[in-house]
Nucleic acid binder design. Structure first.
Lengths: 391, 391
DNA sequence: CATGTTTGTTAGTAAACCTTACGAACGAAA
DNA sequence: TTTCGTTCGTAAGGTTTACTAACAAACATG
């Protein structure tokens, strides 16, 4: 029995549609496609865009005139090239027409804010001491910082991106952030009302992984481990951020490592990742060891041992994740003097020895190049993505 | 500086478009949407579909007439209901017009095949002994079984779905399957050429997780652990299967567990999951313990200890994955006499004690209800998804 | 200077959905 | 029995979208 009259093959795009599509959605898709292409490749002509997107020159021209009408795209004169044919008119995203405001609330004692260009460059930054403020007082600090940063913008603001510690849902409600004393804090909605600007709130580690993806040249599958006062992770699979069923994806700080016990954690368990790896724990351990050491050489060796063990622990906890997701790229974010040395070396060695290296490709582990601005830049990516569909 | 003239908000659908969209793609999306709705809800009128999909009655009628032309949808008389207005004409997927052929190659010694209805019910099944065949001989066994099963179909065949052990890429090439002696075996393409039918080849655990999702009422985020001669996992996030950068997602069989050593594994490492949990290892350990036990009570306790320890090991390795992905649902597939008891109890207890239970929701772990047919049914889901966009 | 090439635009076409309108079929009330 | 309102499915016409075809402008080259 053969497949006589069997239905046509469905393309990947049509797998499990969840919503109806109308003609106007086509326009939005293609408009964003053009913008995205221009954002990434920069200076291009209409004909270039047509070739790259597969759309016709006519359609691209039409979309471009719409985008120019919104001041999102500008013409930059003609291409200087000695070729036959009419010279191309170069286009680019109008990178100075708008700015992005970002806040990083993940610092333990200090909130940071900045104005960024559409390219993710920090143009100016501000800080506010948290000074132990919690709950509504902490919200006031955030609102105050936001107003300050907004005032420093020198172009229309495309939107506001905020990276917050804790568990943040898709609507930008901070479900739980112990450090700031927030529970079910509707941060996005409140700040949107207060400022009249589009606001996006995401978890800090999720913001960080977006920054690494967009600006750090990272792959489509990526795990970023952010080490600070706590330890969290951001996860990108197929270029999409993973949030988890209860928006707590990446919350690996209180997963227990290994089958021996470990240091007691504030959460009550023993051997949590955070008890091994958080910055306060590491600095305290290093301080103790240095104080007890007889000679500088002894001290150095003791410090190296501490960092190596911490790195090994990180490798142990990441190995199942790397195996289950077949991850090839892991990025660390945090104090380089702690992470970038024996620690990361031990982590990658542990990972390689505990997973099946053959067949699964070669694992890469590196420090982020984004430095301290990683959350700010990631929050900006959220804004670009939400407002322009670009990143 | 405010957002004067800031561009419109982009919907989620437009985030990162990668391809141009044409008007005909709309049609495909909406056609599939209608088919999907009908597949899941069954008996519905055109007006019902219009209300549920958001499309107009006119558009739904047009799509339905197209689908009826392909014999995919049929009318089933009028609704028997005492209501004002013209009675509705009930529609349904023509569930007997097509059948699906599935193969399960994951058995250690035996290959299974079946004809399934569009609902995923097994209509008839066949088996072939592998008899140690490897490489090209194993391929011949598969082709022979496939021909047998195809001959038993009693309706046009929608397509062929195959669940294979090992690493399978998106094109259905089996990159590596030690048990079958395959390396870069283009199974999908070869069988497609041989049969003239659409063929889809996926990893067996990935097929299984699709079956659990479609037929087992599972959630959108789901991890399925398949315990057999080896141990593998299938992962679903947001309703989408995760394949991994090198198509090896779910290959957790050779990840090392814990910080004490463990049994030596065939891969050379000590303490791999497979060394703790594979069916041969467990049955051997149980056999030894039973033989050494003085009394039946001793034997029972020893068996329980072995299964509890295996379950604990599974919990240890899954904890970081569950934490990192914020998974709430885990399903086990394999011999229930081994898995469904002390083992699964120990796994879920270990998971709960090693992850942050609060905030992340309550974890569920259960046996699959799909039994031995799970891979066959999952392979059928692949066909439904590829050919009709339905599942 | 004629020719060929490339760019961007104009005009017309096809596909998809929508809105509006209508006949058919039914229950309920006058 | 007749009238009215409701619901279903279809028909006709309009809008949006991107496409094809054709063209003018601007340039290099022989």
């Amino acid at each position: 029995m053969t497949a006589t009259g069997a239905p046509r093959m469905i393309q990947d795009r049509a797998l499990r549609p969840t919503t109806k599509v109308l003609p106007e959605h086509i326009r939005l898709n293609n408009r964003t496609l053009v913008l995205q292409t221009l954002y990434r490749s920069g200076l291009q002509s209409r004909a270039d865009l047509a070739r790259e997107t597969g759309l016709t020159r006519v359609t691209v021209s039409d979309l471009i005139s719409e985008l120019m009408g919104e001041n999102l795209v500008i013409e930059l004169g003609q291409r200087q090239e000695s070729r036959p044919g009419k010279p191309a008119t170069l286009l680019d995203i109008n990178r100075v027409a708008f700015q992005i405001v970002s806040l990083d609330l993940s610092g333990h004692t200090r909130l940071r804010g900045a104005v960024l260009s559409l390219d993710g460059a920090v143009l100016s930054s501000s800080e506010v001491e948290l000074a132990g403020a919690r709950g509504e007082a902490a919200f006031d600090k955030v609102a105050e910082l936001l107003a300050q940063v907004i005032a420093r913008a020198t172009a229309p603001i495309l939107g506001v991106g905020i990276g917050s510690p804790g568990i943040v849902d898709r609507a930008g409600v901070v479900r739980n952030a112990p450090n700031l004393g927030w529970r079910d804090q509707p941060l996005q909605a409140r700040l949107q009302d207060a400022t009249g600007l589009p606001v996006r709130v995401v978890n800090d580690a999720n913001a960080a992984v977006l920054a690494e993806h967009s600006f750090g040249g990272a792959d489509h599958d990526l795990l970023l481990v952010k080490v600070g006062h706590g330890v969290g992770a951001g996860l990108l699979i197929g270029g999409r951020a993973i949030f988890g069923e209860r928006f707590a994806a990446g919350e690996i700080g209180h997963v227990v490592i290994g089958t021996d016990d470990g240091p007691l954690c504030v959460c009550g368990k023993s051997g949590c990742l955070e008890a091994w790896l958080s910055v306060p724990r590491l600095t305290a351990a290093i301080h103790d060891a240095t104080a007890q050491a007889a000679t500088p050489a002894d001290a150095e060796r003791a410090v190296s041992d501490i960092l190596t063990e911490a790195g090994r622990r990180l490798g142990i906890i990441l190995a199942p994740v790397v195996g289950a997701l077949n991850l090839l790229e892991i990025v660390l974010s945090g104090p380089p003097e702690l992470l970038d040395g024996p620690l990361s070396t031990a982590t990658v060695e542990t990972l390689r020895s505990r997973t099946m290296a053959t067949e699964t490709g070669d694992l890469t582990l590196r420090m982020t190049a984004q430095g301290e601005d990683i959350v700010l830049r990631g929050a900006a990516v959220m804004v670009l993505s939400a407002q322009l569909g670009v990143s």
